[in-house]
Amino acid sequence: MPQIVESALGALGRKTLSFLKDLHKVSVLINEVFYWTIVSPLKGRPPRVRAAVSEMVKTGYDSVLVVVVIAFFVGAILAFQSAYQLKKFGALLYIANLVGVAITRELGPIITAIIVAGRSGSAFAAEIGSMRAQEEIDALTSMGINPVRFLVVPKLIALMLMQPALTTFFDIVGMLGGFVLSITLLGINPAAYVNQTIIALQVNDLVTGLVKAWAFGVIITITGAYQGLQVNAGAEEVGRRTTASVVMSIFLVIGFDLFFTALFYYFT
């Protein structure tokens, strides 16, 4: 029995140590990203704007279609589900409130973040990971080019802008989905629905949603970059790290979301 306890404690200790080591590596990366994104431009060394633009196209523009389609469906589903409850009270018009608030405050930011984590976060991890495996990162460093500045910062800038932008698309099209479903299948008066939405929505809801989206963009970029940079060798590890980046991003996004939501609940 003592032996089992001992080995269990040993395993726990090793897990804790390796967790602390990972935490240290993450904080070093965050530190470096922060330096090259904010401090170094102030010292007169601007980020790579063209690379950032091309990342914006890849992460933002190319994601619009999938975000929009999913948003429309989510809005319609939400309207259906609300109707199921609300019609018992003869309060179908309140679908507009439910759809508007749920999408702008919660579903828009979080579903967009999950889509982007799967599309772009994984691509970041795979790109940086395979560059690690093929010594391309070492080559950059040996040429005196900082890999974080060269690779991570453009991606970060892109997602910091594109995540709120995609979330805005999601919000608009999601509400449109709810609207279209309500005025057709549920037979709600269009003008009344729009009116009700305008009454229900507050600027606050939109802003908190976009602030969250911005933070999710940062989380997804750092997670993808971190997992990619951890690769030491081999295509197999690139695959494993790519998967890990998606799982970890989604986990962190939802964790932070709970935190933010609690924060907004108590302080607004």
Partner: peptide, 19 residues
């Protein structure tokens, strides 16, 4: 180290060109 890196060149085992 930064100065030194500008004055040396390296050919890596797999060439390590940016693909």
């Amino acid at each position: 180290l930064e100065q030194y890196r500008k004055k040396m060149g390296v050919l890596f085992q797999g060439a390590a060109l940016l693909n």
